[in-house]
Computed example of a mutant assay.
Amino acid sequence: MKKIITGVALLLTPLLVIAEEVLPDIKVYKSPTCGCCAKWVRHLEDSGFSVDAKNVDNVHDYKRKAHLPHSLSSCHTAFVDGYAIEGHVPASDIKKLLTEKPDIRGLAVPGMPVGSPGMEYGSRKEAYQTISYTREGVTAVFTSH
C-alpha cells in the first residue's frame, strides 16, 4: 500500500506544482524626489517584476532614448525586454505587451491620471488609456482603463 501511495504522489506532484511566472527585469529611471514613481515601482514588484530603479538628474535623456513622442510624456521612463514604458502603465498592460510582443517601441500613460498605479487617491479614479507608440511616432490605444 505504501508503494501505491508513493507512486500516486509522484504522479500527482507535477500537477500540484504551480509554475512561477518568470518576468524580465525592468529598469526604471526616475527623479529621486518623486513619490508616485516609487509607488509605481512597488506596484510592479507586487505584480512579480524585478525592478532596478535608478534615481537620475535628467529623465529627459531616457525619454529621448525611448523615442518618446512629447505628447506621451510622464514622470518616469522604464525599459523592459526591448520596449520602453512611460509613466504609470499598469503591470497587467506590461504583461500583455510581453506576451503579445507587438511591433511597437513602447507603451505610455501620458500625464499622471488619478487612479493609475502609483497615483491612487482614495477611491477617486479617472478614466485613462495606455497608448502604444512606434519608433516613427504612430500611436494607438493599447488598453482603456
Results as ranks from 00 to 15, higher is better:
residue 83 Y to F: 12
residue 67 H to K: 09
residue 73 S to D: 03
residue 76 H to V: 11
residue 36 C to H: 01
residue 83 Y to K: 08
residue 86 E to T: 08
residue 89 V to R: 13
residue 82 G to T: 04
residue 28 V to Y: 11
residue 91 A to C: 04
residue 50 S to G: 06
residue 58 N to K: 02
residue 44 L to E: 12
residue 53 A to R: 01
residue 52 D to K: 15
residue 38 A to Q: 14
residue 41 V to F: 10
residue 54 K to Q: 15
residue 88 H to C: 07
residue 61 D to G: 08
residue 60 H to C: 03
residue 46 D to T: 09
residue 89 V to C: 13
residue 40 W to S: 04
residue 35 G to H: 07
residue 64 R to Y: 06
residue 76 H to P: 15
residue 82 G to I: 02
residue 35 G to S: 05
residue 86 E to D: 02
residue 65 K to Y: 14
residue 44 L to W: 03
residue 36 C to Y: 04
residue 47 S to D: 09
residue 70 H to Q: 09
residue 27 K to L: 01
residue 57 D to S: 15
residue 47 S to G: 10
residue 30 K to H: 09
residue 47 S to T: 05
residue 29 Y to T: 02
residue 50 S to Q: 15
residue 79 F to W: 09
residue 41 V to M: 07
residue 28 V to L: 11
residue 67 H to N: 09
residue 78 A to D: 14
residue 36 C to V: 07
residue 89 V to D: 14
residue 28 V to A: 14
residue 79 F to D: 12
residue 62 Y to V: 02
residue 59 V to K: 07
residue 70 H to Y: 10
residue 79 F to T: 01
residue 25 D to P: 06
residue 28 V to D: 12
residue 69 P to F: 00
residue 44 L to I: 06
residue 33 T to Y: 13
residue 58 N to D: 15
residue 80 V to M: 12
residue 54 K to Y: 12
residue 73 S to C: 15
residue 41 V to C: 14
residue 87 G to Y: 12
residue 59 V to D: 10
residue 83 Y to H: 02
residue 43 H to T: 06
residue 40 W to N: 03
residue 77 T to N: 06
residue 33 T to Q: 06
residue 26 I to T: 08
residue 78 A to L: 10
residue 33 T to W: 09
residue 48 G to I: 05
residue 74 S to F: 08
residue 86 E to R: 09
residue 61 D to C: 06
residue 39 K to Y: 06
residue 34 C to T: 07
residue 57 D to M: 01
residue 62 Y to N: 09
residue 28 V to E: 02
residue 28 V to I: 11
residue 26 I to Q: 05
residue 31 S to F: 02
residue 85 I to Q: 11
residue 58 N to V: 13
residue 45 E to M: 00
residue 47 S to H: 00
residue 42 R to V: 04
residue 49 F to N: 10
residue 51 V to T: 07
residue 82 G to Q: 06
residue 63 K to H: 10
residue 90 P to R: 03
residue 68 L to E: 08
residue 45 E to V: 09
residue 80 V to E: 11
residue 42 R to W: 06
residue 72 L to Q: 03
residue 82 G to H: 00
residue 25 D to Q: 10
residue 39 K to R: 13
residue 90 P to M: 08
residue 68 L to Y: 14
residue 43 H to E: 00
residue 42 R to D: 14
residue 44 L to A: 13
residue 70 H to E: 03
residue 85 I to P: 10
residue 44 L to V: 05
residue 84 A to L: 03
residue 70 H to A: 06
residue 29 Y to G: 04
residue 27 K to Y: 05
residue 46 D to R: 05
residue 36 C to W: 02
residue 27 K to C: 05
residue 51 V to R: 07
residue 51 V to S: 00
residue 53 A to Q: 00
residue 66 A to S: 14
residue 48 G to R: 10
residue 33 T to K: 07
residue 80 V to Q: 01
residue 83 Y to A: 04
residue 66 A to D: 07
residue 56 V to P: 02
residue 62 Y to W: 07
residue 68 L to S: 14
residue 30 K to C: 01
residue 38 A to I: 15
residue 69 P to S: 07
residue 77 T to S: 12
residue 29 Y to R: 02
residue 85 I to T: 11
residue 70 H to F: 13
residue 37 C to M: 08
residue 71 S to G: 02
residue 57 D to Q: 06
residue 26 I to K: 10
residue 31 S to W: 05
residue 79 F to K: 03
residue 51 V to C: 03
